[in-house]
């Protein structure tokens, strides 16, 4: 399916998206390690929606969305996504947020629900687990963290092929490493502490009355499953879908399953 790269200026910042498909608008927000491109999940959803895979401000490398130097919290990114939706006159949209992008999506839902038709949270960060702990990327290498988002090394390598010589110390491509590091720097700028949660989010979720879908991989090793239940309890109109044999990055590891869940089984 044809895909375009579009950049829209919001608050003085160029914000990049990959867009394609037809139908009602659906916006996808990526994990903290970034969106690797126009992926199978985008392709699958593009049969049903006009998909906008947005690079969050400061993410996507030198060709991605520009960094807001002033941003200090994921809420600042949510505000910019809201401004971007208004600038493009896209709303109300289906908003799908994965991992860190799920946290940004949830924040946007609390501040501008009128921009959204439905909120889809996939392994979303944002809430402090009561028992478990959100896996801390700042204590491990970039590649170890991203690999932890998949249920197996094979699933990780299907998205991030080790395209160098296996005997090399760093078999992943230079471009991937640079973009990962730029994305991690941006995550550091807005999310160093408290790590991947906002105590002021949960009380506000009660006011988000639009339909919500919470999707979790049953092998999520990054955000504990209890956070899925916490979102379902806090959001007035939410239901939970669990994807079997899948890690944290459901969008990358099980795109067909996720697309089917989002489209109501029409996938």
């Amino acid at each position: 399916m044809a895909m375009q790269t579009v950049t829209t200026t919001v608050a003085g910042l160029g914000m990049r998206e990959f867009t394609g498909g037809s139908g009602d608008p659906l916006v996808m927000l990526h994990h903290s390690f970034g969106n690797p491109g126009w992926m199978p999940i985008h392709e699958a959803l593009a049969y049903h929606y006009t998909v906008h895979a947005l690079d969050l401000p400061g993410y996507g490398g030198t060709d991605g969305s520009e960094r807001p130097e002033w941003a200090r919290h994921p809420r600042d990114l949510a505000l910019l996504v809201g401004q971007w939706l208004r600038a493009k006159e896209l709303g109300p949209v289906e908003l799908v947020g994965c991992g860190f992008g799920g946290w940004v999506a949830a924040e946007l839902a609390t501040m501008s629900p009128e921009l959204l038709k439905r909120l889809v949270l996939v392994g979303a960060a944002g809430l402090l687990p009561e028992n478990g702990r959100i896996y801390d990327q700042f204590l491990v290498s970039h590649s170890n963290y991203v690999e932890a988002a998949f249920s197996s090394t094979e699933a990780f390598e299907a998205i991030y092929p080790r395209n160098g010589d296996e005997s090399e110390e760093h078999p992943l491509g230079d471009d991937t490493l640079v973009v990962w590091d730029m994305n991690r720097e941006m995550t550091t700028r807005v999310g160093w502490k408290p790590y991947m949660y906002n105590r002021r989010l949960r009380p506000l979720l009660g006011g988000v009355t639009i339909p919500a879908l919470v999707v979790w991989g049953d092998n999520d090793a990054v955000v504990p499953m209890e956070c899925a239940h916490a979102y379902v309890e806090a959001l007035p109109d939410a239901r939970l879908e669990i994807v079997p044999d899948c890690g944290h990055a459901v969008d990358l590891e099980a795109p067909e399953s996720l697309a089917a869940i989002i489209t109501g089984g029409e996938g």
Partner: peptide, 12 residues
């Protein structure tokens, strides 16, 4: 950045 990212992911 590239040198750093290579070193950080080298697992030496």
């Amino acid at each position: 950045r590239l040198d750093y990212a290579k070193m950080a992911n080298a697992e030496v």
